[in-house]
Design a protein around this nucleic acid. Structure first.
Length: 834
RNA sequence: GCUGGGGUGGCGAAAUGGCAGACGCACCGGCUUUAGGAGCCGGCGCCGCAAGGCAUGUGGGUUCAAGUCCCACCCCCAGCACCA
C-alpha cells in the first residue's frame, strides 16, 4: 500500500462528486426526505474561517450518515452577500460591490469544495442576485399589504461612524454592534416590521420545537413577556380630565403607590405644561437627559436622577390620595406606557428614588411567615426601629390596603384592578423591527411615493426593483441613502396614476435575505414564485439547523417571524421553520483569544488543507473538544488527527491488499474481543453522532484502531476482521473522513462495494457481539478498591462474593475483621463492609 | 442583579451513583535511522524507595460507594439588564 497522499485522493473524489452531482437532492425521490441546514456564510474578503469549518463539518457528518441510512438528503449552501463590509470595501477602492461579491464567493466556493462538504451545489443561492431579492421584495410587499410594514417617524439609534440607523438588536450596551461607536438618537422616518404582532406565537411555539435549552431561553428573554395591568391615575385639577396610565406587574401593591414617574419623552409632558410651576427646571432636565446617549445613561449607573413636576398631582385610585408626579430617566418611554406608579416599599428602583427625594415609603405587603426574607426584615426592623429598610419585592399578604387586607398577592391583583377600573395586560420587551437602512448594498424597498396617491407599492410583476449601478457608495451625512442622488432611478411614473413619483431610497437591513433563504433552497430557480407549494410541502420543515450562538436571538427570531407570516398567507406549509436547532462553540485562536487579524492568530483553512488534507482538518475540528464549547486552536494537536488517519489508512489498506492476493479468507477468524469492540464502536459512533458528541465518537474510533493494530494482533492482522467487519470499519469512518473512506471503499475487492460509499447502508451492530464476554470485577473493602479480577460475564452473586472473600488483598485489608455486609453489583463490583 | 452553561493532570478533555483522568497533544525513556524527522514499543495526576496515602473550585450532607445526588458559598464564560 502506498503512502497516504490526501492531496491526490481528495482532489479526485471532490471532482467526481461535483461532476456526477452525487449530492444533488432529488425532489421526486421515493426515499424519506431529510433537510439539513447550516447558516450560509457572509462572503467576506477574509475567506473561510475555521468556525465555518466546524459548523459545516458537523452537519456534513449528519448529512452523510442520513444518506447512508436511506434518506434523500437536502444539504444546501449559498451566500448572504449584502452587507456593510463589502460596501465599505467598495467605498474605499471604488470597486463595485457586485465585483467584490463575485470574487469573494468564488473564493468561498473553492474553499468549501476543498473540504469535501456534501453540499448540493445546484441549489446555490445568493441574496444579492436580482432573481433572489426579487422574492425578498415580494415578501416585503406582502407585509405591506397586510399592514405589517409601515413607515413611522421615530427616534432611532444612529451610528455616526457607519452613518446608519440600527435596530435595537444591533445596539450592544449603547454602542454600535459593528464598530463600537457610541450610538446617538435621531428622529427619522423608518420602515418598520410589526414583529410584535407575532410576539405571543413566537414565544408559545417554542414549545413545539427541539432547540437547545439555552437557545430557547435566549429567545424567551428577548421576547420578554410580562403579565400585568394598566391602571389610570387621574390628574388633579387638570382640564378635560387628563390622566396618566401606568403599566404594572404588581397591581396588588397599588395602596403603596406614593408618587408617580413619567418618562422625560412622554407625550403628556406637553399636555401638563400648563400645570407645571417649575417649567424651566423641568425643561432643563428633559434637555439634559435626551442629549445623553444610552452609553452615558449607563455610565451614571443606578444613581437615580429626576425632577418633581411641581403643581401636578395625581390621584391614587385606590387610596384617593393626591400624590406627586416626577419625571425621571429611569422610566423608559419605550416600555409599557412610559409612566409608572412608584411603590418604594416593594420595588428596588422606586425605593432608591424615594430615599433620595424623601418620598414616603408605605409597606402594603407582608411576607408570608415561611418566606426567607421575613426573618431578615424583622431583625433589621428591631435593630433600626420601625420603618422599611429594604424593599420587599416578593409576594405576600396584603396590609394597609383597605378591603383587601389579609388577601394573598396573587388573588388581590385581579380584585384591585377591577375595583379601580384597570385592565389586565400583557407587555413584551420585543419592539417592532426597524427595517430601513440608508445604504447602497441592500435590497431596494419596493415602494414609490406619488404626489397624488401617496405611498404606492411597486406592482409584483415589476419586481425586482433592481439596484442601479452608481459611482459613489458613500452614505450621506444627512442620513439619506446614496440612491437618493440617482435621479434617473429615483424619479419614476406612479404605478397607479402614471404621474410623477419618487422611489423609496432606503434599502433593507442585511437580515432580510437570510430571513427566508431556507425556503429558496427548496426551489432556487423558480421565477414564477419564491418556491413551488408542492416542493415546500415535500421538504419543509428543516429537520436540523446548526449555526452560531451569535445568531440565536436575531436571525432565528426574524426568520421564524417571516416563516410564520408566510404560513399565515398560506404559502408555506409549516408554522415553525426549524424542527431542531443546535449551536457550535467558537474556534478561538491559540491561547484562547478570539481569532482576529489584529491579533495575528487567524488560522486559514487553506494552509491546513495544504499541509494535512481536508480529512485531517475535519477530524481535528471534530475531535478538539465538545462541539458546543469554545475551544482554542492548537496547531500541535492537529498532528493527532493526522497520525490517526495515516494509521487507519495503513491498516485498512493492508487488509484490503491482503484480500486481493489471498486465495482464501479465514472468515470469522477475528478474536472475539476485537469483533466485540468493533460492534460496540459501531453503536457508539452512531449514538455519538446523533448527540453531536463528535469528540468521543472519534476517540472510540481511535481506541478501536489501537486495539486492531496492537503488537499482539499484528502477526494475524490480515485475518483479524471478516469482510463484513472491514466494510463496517470503513463505513463508520466515512462521515468524518469521507475522502479516505471513499478511496478505501473503491479499492475493496469485487463484490464488497458498489457505487458511492455515501449510499451504502450504515452498518448495524450486533448486540450479541457487542456484549463483552469477560468483565473486570472490582473488589472493595469499605468502599476502597483493593483488587480487580477478570471474570466471565454474568457471574452470579454467590460466586462473586466467594471469590472476593477468598481474595488475598481483600483478606489483608480486612485484617481479620468480620464482614458486616457484602454489596454485590452484577459484573461490576463486590464491596465488603466490615 | 436575572437567566443559562461551566470549574477534573502541563494542555484539549473522558467518565448510565460503582477502578477518576479513556482518547489526543506535550514531555521522558527505548528500538530504528548517517543525521533530522517520521515510525514503532514503553512511561507519564500529586506525595512516597516501597507498602500505601492524597486527589475532580471551597465547606457541609446523603450513601456500602459521590466528579456525578442534596444544601451553602467562591470563581469563570455567554446572553439579558433602570422592562415597572
Amino acid at each position: 500500500m502506498e503512502r497516504y497522499d490526501p492531496g491526490e485522493i481528495e482532489r479526485k473524489w471532490q471532482e467526481r462528486w461535483r461532476e456526477e452531482k452525487v449530492f444533488a437532492a432529488r425532489d421526486d425521490s421515493p426515499k424519506p426526505k431529510y433537510y439539513a441546514l447550516v447558516e450560509f456564510p457572509y462572503p467576506s474578503g477574509d475567506g473561510l474561517h475555521t468556525g465555518h469549518v466546524r459548523s459545516y463539518t458537523a452537519m456534513d457528518i449528519i448529512a452523510r450518515k442520513r444518506r447512508m441510512e436511506g434518506y434523500n438528503v437536502l444539504y444546501p449552501i449559498g451566500w448572504d452577500a449584502f452587507g456593510l463590509p463589502t460596501e465599505n470595501y467598495a467605498i474605499k477602492t471604488g470597486t463595485h460591490p457586485k465585483v467584490v461579491t463575485k470574487r469573494n464567493t468564488d473564493t468561498f466556493r473553492r474553499q468549501l469544495q476543498s473540504l469535501g462538504f456534501s453540499f448540493d451545489w445546484d441549489r446555490e443561492v445568493n441574496t444579492t442576485d436580482p432573481g433572489y431579492y426579487r422574492w425578498t421584495q415580494w415578501i416585503f410587499l406582502q407585509f405591506y399589504k397586510k399592514g405589517l410594514a409601515y413607515k413611522e417617524k421615530m427616534p432611532i439609534n444612529w451610528c455616526p461612524s457607519c452613518k446608519i440607523g440600527l435596530a435595537n438588536e444591533e445596539v450592544v450596551s449603547g454602542k454600535c454592534e459593528r464598530c463600537g461607536t457610541p450610538v446617538e438618537r435621531r428622529e427619522k422616518e423608518q420602515w418598520m416590521l410589526a414583529i410584535t404582532k407575532y410576539a405571543d406565537r413566537l414565544l408559545a411555539d417554542l414549545d413545539t420545537v427541539d432547540y437547545l435549552e439555552k437557545i430557547k431561553t435566549q429567545q424567551m428573554n428577548w421576547i420578554g413577556r410580562s403579565e400585568g395591568a394598566e391602571i389610570d391615575f387621574a390628574i388633579a385639577d387638570a382640564e378635560g380630565g387628563a390622566k396618566l396610565t401606568v403599566f404594572t406587574t404588581r397591581p396588588d401593591t397599588l395602596f403603596g403607590a406614593t408618587y408617580m414617574v413619567i418618562a422625560p419623552e412622554h407625550p403628556l409632558m406637553h399636555a401638563l405644561s400648563g400645570l407645571i410651576e417649575n417649567r424651566a427646571e423641568v425643561a432643563a432636565y428633559v434637555k439634559k437627559v435626551s442629549a445623553n446617549t444610552e452609553e452615558e445613561r449607563l455610565a451614571e449607573g443606578k444613581e437615580k436622577t429626576g425632577v418633581e413636576l411641581k403643581g401636578v398631582m395625581a390621584i391614587n385610585p385606590a387610596t384617593k390620595e393626591k400624590i406627586p408626579v416626577f419625571t425621571a430617566d429611569y422610566v423608559l418611554a419605550s416600555y409599557g406606557t412610559g409612566a409608572i406608579m412608584a411603590v418604594p416599599a416593594h420595588d428596588e428602583r422606586d425605593f432608591a428614588f424615594a430615599k433620595k427625594f424623601g418620598m414616603p415609603i408605605r409597606q402594603v405587603i407582608a411576607p408570608r411567615s415561611a418566606d426567607p426574607q421575613t426573618a431578615l426584615r424583622q431583625e433589621e426592623g428591631s435593630a433600626r426601629g420601625s420603618g422599611v429598610e429594604i424593599p420587599y419585592t416578593g409576594d405576600g399578604i396584603l396590609m394597609d390596603s383597605g378591603p383587601f387586607d389579609g388577601m394573598d398577592s396573587e388573588e388581590a391583583k385581579k380584585g384591585i384592578v377591577n375595583a379601580v377600573g384597570g385592565r389586565m395586560k400583557t407587555q413584551f420587551h420585543l419592539r417592532d423591527w426597524v427595517f430601513s437602512r440608508q445604504h447602497y448594498w441592500g435590497e431596494p424597498i419596493p415602494i414609490v411615493f406619488c404626489e397624488k396617491d401617496g405611498m404606492v407599492p411597486v406592482p409584483e410583476e415589476d419586481l425586482p426593483v433592481r439596484l442601479p449601478d452608481i459611482e459613489k457608495y458613500q452614505p450621506t451625512d444627512t442620513g439619506e441613502s446614496p440612491l437618493a442622488a440617482i435621479g434617473d432611478w429615483v424619479n419614476v411614473a406612479c404605478p397607479k396614476c402614471g404621474g410623477p413619483a419618487r422611489r423609496e431610497t432606503d434599502t433593507m437591513p442585511n437580515w432580510a435575505g437570510s430571513s427566508w433563504y431556507f425556503l429558496r433552497y427548496i426551489d432556487p430557480r423558480n421565477d414564477a414564485m419564491f418556491a413551488a407549494p408542492e416542493k415546500l410541502k415535500h421538504w419543509m420543515q428543516v429537520d436540523w439547523y446548526n449555526g452560531g450562538m451569535e445568531h440565536t436571538t436575531l436571525h432565528l427570531l426574524y426568520s421564524r417571524f417571516w416563516n410564520k407570516f408566510l404560513y399565515d398567507l398560506g404559502v408555506v406549509p409549516v408554522s415553525e421553520p426549524y424542527m431542531k436547532r443546535t449551536s457550535q462553540g467558537m474556534v478561538l485562536g491559540k491561547g484562547g483569544d478570539k481569532m482576529s487579524k489584529s491579533k495575528g492568530n487567524v488560522v486559514n483553512p487553506d494552509s491546513v488543507v495544504a499541509e494535512f488534507g481536508a480529512d485531517t482538518l475535519r477530524v481535528y475540528e471534530m475531535f478538539m473538544g465538545p462541539f458546543d464549547q469554545a475551544i482554542p486552536w492548537d496547531d500541535k494537536a492537529i498532528q493527532g488527527a493526522a497520525r490517526f488517519l495515516e494509521r487507519f489508512w495503513r491498516y485498512a489498506g493492508d487488509m484490503i491488499g491482503a484480500r486481493a492476493q489471498a486465495q482464501e479468507h479465514r472468515e470469522g477468524a477475528a478474536e472475539g474481543r476485537k469483533r466485540s469492540l468493533l460492534h460496540r464502536t459501531i453503536k457508539k459512533v452512531g449514538d455519538d453522532i446523533e448527540a453531536m458528541k463528535f469528540n468521543t465518537a472519534i476517540s472510540s474510533l481511535m481506541i478501536l484502531l489501537n486495539e486492531l493494530t496492537d503488537a499482539e494482533g499484528r502477526s494475524d492482522a490480515v485475518v483479524a476482521l471478516t469482510d463484513a467487519d472491514l466494510v463496517a470499519l470503513v463505513k463508520i469512518l466515512n462521515p468524518f473522513a469521507p475522502h479516505m473512506a471513499q478511496e478505501l471503499w473503491s479499492r475493496m475487492p469485487e463484490g464488497l462495494h458498489a457505487g458511492y460509499l455515501d449510499f451504502a447502508a450504515w452498518p448495524t451492530y450486533d448486540p450479541a457481539l457487542a456484549a463483552e464476554d469477560e468483565v473486570t470485577l472490582v473488589f472493595q473493602v469499605d468502599g476502597r478498591v483493593r483488587d480487580t479480577v477478570r471474570v466471565a460475564r454474568g457471574m452470579e452473586e454467590a460466586a462473586a462474593k466467594d471469590l472476593a472473600l477468598a481474595n488475598g488483598k481483600v483478606r489483608a485489608a480486612l485484617a481479620g475483621r468480620e464482614p458486616t455486609r457484602v454489596i454485590w453489583v452484577k459484573d461490576k463490583l463486590v464491596n465488603v463492609v466490615a
